[in-house]
């Protein structure tokens, strides 16, 4: 464990908690892409199956359980509890255009042709594109509430910190996970446009982010 990965995990946890609390307290999921949240729940489900097969550390196990519970709880809030506030017409990204290529690629490019390994690879590839429905929804509606932009900021920052973690681990222990690194770079690149808007608009105190 290193500071970059710890900070990254904390940013990830903060992002997930920000979103959950926003929906829970405002009793509304307006402007939130339910599809992205379903994809994130799928990412955690396919990645954390080793919860039952291998124990790494208390931290590892606790974080995996927390991420799984919060991910499913958020999906529950969006599609069940506050479904009347869900903008399904704005959440129109065709997720099958993500799932099919990601599933195909995870069978082609992986470290081992074994069920857990394929599922782990699938979760890594899927995570890199899971935010696209949410970013697409924001471009479609042309705006995002500031709390939603803070959620996206921490979510984008988490994987950027993981990139720093991989640089650190490469230089200190020769660790290099090609699949995770390439996907992490792609994932972080998708946030670049958002980061620009976030720093130039939201942090200037203009509150809501309205796209040009």
């Amino acid at each position: 464990m290193n500071i970059f990965r710890l900070l990254g995990d904390m940013c990830h946890l903060v992002a997930i908690i920000i979103l959950f609390l926003k929906i829970w307290r405002s009793k509304s999921c307006a402007g939130i892409s339910g599809k992205s949240q379903v994809l994130f729940a799928l990412v955690f489900t396919t990645r954390y199956l080793d919860l039952f097969t291998s124990f790494i550390s208390v931290y590892n196990t606790v974080m995996k359980v927390v991420f799984l519970v919060l991910a499913y709880a958020t999906v529950y809030l969006i599609y069940l509890r506050f479904r009347s506030t869900y903008n399904s017409e704005s959440d129109s990204f065709r997720v099958e255009f993500l799932l099919v290529p990601v599933a195909g690629l995870s069978f082609l490019e992986n470290y081992a042709f074994a069920p857990l390994e394929i599922l782990w690879t699938f979760s890594i590839y899927l995570e890199s594109v899971a935010i696209l429905p949410q970013l697409f929804m924001i471009t479609k509606t042309g705006e995002a509430e500031s709390i939603t932009t803070h959620y996206l900021f921490f979510l984008g920052l988490y994987r950027a910190l993981y990139l720093a973690n991989w640089v650190w681990r490469y230089h200190t222990e020769g660790f290099f996970d090609q699949i995770a690194v390439v996907s992490g770079v792609v994932q972080t690149i998708f946030y670049c446009d958002f980061f620009y808007l976030y720093f130039t608009k939201v942090l200037r105190g203009s509150g809501k982010m309205t796209l040009p």
Binding site: H12, D50, I56, Y111, A112, E117, W120, Y162, N165, D177
Partner: peptide, 10 residues
Amino acid sequence: ADSEKDKDEL
């Protein structure tokens, strides 16, 4: 590629 790498990352 090392398939048995410890997946200690979240």
